Simulated scan of single mutants.
Amino acid sequence: MNFTSRILYLLLFLFLGSQVQAQCPQIIGGDGLPSNNPRWVSCSGGAFNLFIQGNQAIGSYIISWGDGTANNTGASIGAAGFVSHNYAAAQANYTVTITETSTGCVISGTVIMEEAVNSAIQIPLGGVTAVCAPGTMSFTNASTNVSSNTNFIWTFGDGSAPVPFNSTNAGAIVSHTFQRNTVNCVTTVTLSAENFCSFGTPTVASFNPIQVYDIDDAQITASAT
């Protein structure tokens, strides 16, 4: 095989490989759009029925549902057909893997089951809501419907940077030291919380009044007389 023939053979190989790759189906996600990484979000708090449907016919397949139940196998899924699976009520994320065994194509998607998080702040037992600066106060993250996808942001109303936390902050006590000359006596502490079921609109809890006082510095100045 001469050099030119080798080049032509390589180009043909690459072309055929790209054609096989182009034939891989996409799966319709929860947004109604075909995707190589579909996502389905259930915010009901109850069971969820998932429908697997491609943007084209799917050949012989294996579907792993990710919840410990048996795989689903079949000879094909028609262009307008689907395969369904029922997930029991839970707060969880599941990885769904669809393998088209006839081509080797693999599509992975995610099922997210949660409810919209509700942010809430409490003062821990024995806590205070007034200090002389510099002074430390503690706050409890009392948010509900917290899933593993939840993100929190605390702001303390004293000009300090917001403090982000992941879902493990739920139920935790967060302490903050208020410095002198950062609060004009009264301020508000806020906690925002967001997960997939918030759909881009976090819930925000506020706690007020938070009272922060500066201790006056006594000074004596000699009189001129």
Rank of each mutant, 00 (worst) to 15 (best):
Ala47Tyr: 06
Trp65Thr: 11
Val183Asn: 00
Gly46Lys: 04
Ala218Gln: 15
Thr225His: 13
Val146Asn: 10
Ser119Asn: 06
Ser35Thr: 01
Ala172Thr: 15
Thr168Val: 15
Gly81Tyr: 07
Leu50Arg: 00
Asn55Leu: 15
Gln26Cys: 11
Thr99Arg: 12
Asn86Glu: 06
Thr155Trp: 07
Thr144Phe: 11
Gly159Lys: 11
Thr144His: 09
Ile220Tyr: 14
Pro209Tyr: 06
Trp40Arg: 00
Pro34Cys: 09
Ala224Arg: 03
Arg39Val: 11
Ala22Val: 04
Thr187Gly: 07
Ser160Gln: 08
Ala193Phe: 02
Gly157Phe: 00
Phe15Ala: 14
Leu8Pro: 02
His85Gln: 13
Val128Asp: 14
Gly127Pro: 06
Asn195Thr: 05
Ile27His: 04
Asn141Ala: 03
Pro34Asn: 08
Ile7Val: 02
Pro25Phe: 02
Gly78Phe: 00
Ser143Glu: 03
Val146Met: 06
His176Phe: 08
Ile107Ser: 15
Ser119His: 02
Val174Tyr: 05
Ala79Thr: 11
Ala218Tyr: 15
Gly171Gln: 04
Cys24Thr: 13
Ile153Arg: 05
Ser223Gln: 11
Arg180Val: 10
Ile210Trp: 08
Thr190Lys: 11
Glu194Asn: 14
Cys43Phe: 05
Ile121Arg: 14
Ile7Arg: 10
Val146Trp: 12
Ser42Leu: 07
Val212Gly: 03
Pro134His: 12
Gly74His: 03
Asn86Asp: 15
Tyr87Asn: 05
Leu16Cys: 12
Asn151Pro: 09
Thr103Arg: 09
Asn141Pro: 04
Ser192Tyr: 02
Val131Glu: 05
Thr203Lys: 15
Thr203Tyr: 07
Ile220Asn: 07
Gly54Met: 04
Phe207Asn: 05
Ser64Thr: 03
Ile98Leu: 15
Glu115Ile: 13
Val117Cys: 09
Gly32Lys: 08
Ser64Arg: 05
Ser119Asp: 02
Ile215Gln: 10
Met1Ala: 12
Val183Gln: 04
Gln53Met: 08
Asn2Asp: 09
Ala130Asn: 15
Glu194Phe: 13
Ile173Lys: 07
Ser175Met: 01
Ile52Leu: 13
Ile62Met: 13
Phe51Gln: 13
Gly29Leu: 06
Phe3His: 02
Phe178Glu: 01
Ile62Phe: 10
Ile58Met: 05
Cys185Gly: 10
Pro164Arg: 12
Gly68Gln: 04
Asn86Tyr: 03
Ala92Gly: 09
Thr225Gln: 13
